[in-house]
């Protein structure tokens, strides 16, 4: 860990200013990821701006009839919030499938969006990694890539986004509110994270100095038919190999609307509206679900140790859709 200075911001504007002025400064909130990375010398900020005391701690209604999650609400408080449980049980379930109780108490909703990949090579400064050191090469492509991406990869990077929560937020069409030196703006969740392309060092589209202030959940929460299916190498406290967040709006056996987002397979939560559209007005059957899986995984490519993910994801999508469908019957 390098040497850095520490300041605590009391207002959003001050925080934004401090990080805008200092290129090597970073925000810190829950700290669960940045401190981990700093101890590995992967992140080396020269200043940390503590934003934990900013007034972004509320869960409240938003103008669209949905819910607004303050950026500094902890993952645990979000998951156990009565309104989240009632209206967005998919989000609650997804958060609780991630990390550990301790980490969920620390990690914030805003911070969760900024989790960096678990790629072994990204974490190990002894090895080349384009995400950590652009131009140094990707060790994972021809190396050990069990946890790596099968979709949206580039020749530069095959890392995955490790968050669970973000998979649910993607499925729910959440909107991220940010504030920066140039004022406030909204980022649709699908635009928040990016694919690696030729600039794998950038995980998302947030600009320097911008701070996430809140996350908006739209009114529709798919509270009746949903599931989060997470497949991993042990029963708990492990990152997803493949995960699937599903929200269904059903009319009897017919699908009015479907949302399917995948985790663990790409540099961002993976969604494909045209795949979901295949279910619109169709019966909720395994056969139709398989078509969705085919479409979602079109172009999937394995790199050796992660090739199994293609088949696993296919089966997981079908299973998750079945699970979500069967909820109403209970």
């Amino acid at each position: 860990m390098n040497s850095f200075s520490y300041t605590r911001a009391q207002e959003v504007d001050t925080a934004v200013r401090e990080v805008t002025q200092d290129k090597a400064a970073k925000f810190i909130a829950g700290g669960t990821n940045i401190l981990d990375l700093m101890k590995e010398n992967v992140e080396r900020p020269d200043r940390l701006v503590d934003i934990t005391r900013l007034p972004l701690q509320q869960v409240e209604s938003n103008p669209e009839g949905g819910l607004r999650l303050g950026a500094l609400v902890s993952n645990a408080d979000t998951a156990y919030h009565p309104e989240v449980i009632e209206r967005y049980p998919l989000l609650s379930k997804t958060i609780l499938a991630g990390a550990s109780a301790q980490l969920r108490n620390m990690a914030t909703d805003g911070g969760n969006l900024f989790q960096r990949t678990r790629c072994y090579y990204f974490y190990d400064t002894a090895t080349p990694c384009n995400k950590r050191e652009p131009g140094s090469g990707c060790s994972a492509i021809n190396g050990y890539n069990r946890i790596h991406a099968i979709l949206g990869t580039s020749e530069q990077c095959i890392a995955t986004h490790p968050s669970d929560m973000c998979v649910a937020l993607a499925a729910l069409d959440a909107v991220v509110n940010v504030k920066g030196p140039e004022g406030e703006r909204q980022i649709k969740f699908e635009d928040f994270h990016r694919l690696p392309g030729n600039e794998p060092q950038y995980d998302n589209t947030v600009k320097t100095g911008e701070i996430v202030t809140s996350i908006d959940l739209p009114a529709e929460g798919f509270a009746k038919n949903y599931t989060y299916l997470k497949l991993r190498d042990r029963a708990s406290y492990a990152f997803a190999l493949v995960s699937v967040a599903v929200g269904l709006d059903l009319d009897g056996d017919t699908v009015r609307e479907a949302r399917v987002a995948l985790g663990g397979v790409a540099h961002k939560p993976w969604r494909k509206p045209e795949a979901e559209a295949l279910l619109k007005g169709q019966k909720a059957t395994k056969e139709n679900f398989r078509k969705v899986a085919d479409a979602l995984l079109q172009g999937a490519k394995g790199f050796g140790s992660n090739t199994f993910k293609i088949e696993l994801a296919h089966r997981a999508i079908v299973r998750a859709l079945v699970m979500a469908t069967e909820m109403k019957k209970k």
């Binding site: 072994y120 050990y144 069990r146």
Partner: peptide
């Protein structure tokens, strides 16, 4: 303990990626 044979290095050298059974297992 998984080796990257190009590098001759155990790559999952931490307790997040070297999985030992947890309580739920």
């Amino acid at each position: 303990s998984v080796l990257d044979h190009n590098l001759g290095r155990f790559m999952n050298h931490n307790l997040a990626e070297y999985h030992v059974a947890v309580n739920a297992d």
